[in-house]
Design a binder for these strands. Structure first.
Lengths: 135, 135
DNA sequence: TCTGCACCTTCCCATCATGGTAAGGTCAAG
DNA sequence: CTTGACCTTACCATGATGGGAAGGTGCAGA
């Protein structure tokens, strides 16, 4: 099938399919006489795998590792589990950071009357308070 | 003071200070005879405001709005509160999405023995299951 | 005065995943 | 033969940030 149908079936844009090929995440596609790329079951499966991993927030490097493990029939599930747990820890870290930001903002907003006077604890907090959240 | 000291005092890199100037987030700095940029209290205050807002996850567009409100003595705190609450809602959305990703991964990892056999529910999940989390 | 060093200037390039667009080739249906 | 949908490559853009080159400035010490 052509790249457009592969895109529709997997939810990965044609643009990105070509990009994944160019960076070696997927092998060079077969070409027809017309020079159009030609995809089969195997490619669709691989692209679907990539999309689902991205939906779960894995980075491209992590996906590269997962694809390697996926294709390795000798791999132990322990390797995959370790990679996954490391990613879960990253997600926890991001969630915690966003939660801290949220808490700081909510505290400032709570202290703000939200009326028409120019006094505003939010602005004052941004203008001078040393906040604790960091990237 | 020179840009290096302004950077040290505010935690904003010299590179970014020049960048903020180029995109109009801060006014063009005064120049000395040497053509070096020259900063004073006011600039330091403004840069600190920007850094703290970034630490709290505000986008550049949001920061632009906050700076406008900060400098507007006629602004009502209601405007600032509304912008902040909108940002809190964005944070909530991100936190929820990350939580869903985490939940899906944790479920898969729990079902994975993590031993040396190649069977792995995580890989199987990525290979075929339709997952619900979306960006 | 000369030298060295720390600092500054502008300009260009790179990241990362993704999208847009332009110029042109392929193919099937009418 | 034309039209339209599809494909190809190639270039540019995003947004926040950093890296680095080439060259000017300013100060302290020999």
């Amino acid at each position: 099938m052509q790249i457009g149908e592969a895109s529709r079936l997997t939810g990965v844009s044609a643009k990105m399919i070509r990009h994944y090929e160019s960076i070696g995440l997927i092998p060079n596609a077969d070409r027809r006489d017309s020079n159009y790329r030609d995809y089969g079951h195997h490619d669709i499966h691989r692209l679907g795998f990539i999309r689902r991993a991205r939906d779960l927030g894995f980075s491209m490097d992590e996906i590269r590792d997962l694809l390697r493990l996926w294709g390795d029939t000798q791999r132990s599930s322990a390797d995959v589990k370790a990679l996954t747990q490391s990613h879960i820890a990253e997600l926890d870290q991001k969630i915690r950071l966003l939660g801290e930001m949220r808490h700081t903002l909510a505290t400032l907003a709570d202290a703000c009357d939200g009326d028409h006077r120019p006094d505003c604890p939010i602005i004052e907090g941004l203008a001078g308070t040393e906040l604790h959240a960091r990237n």
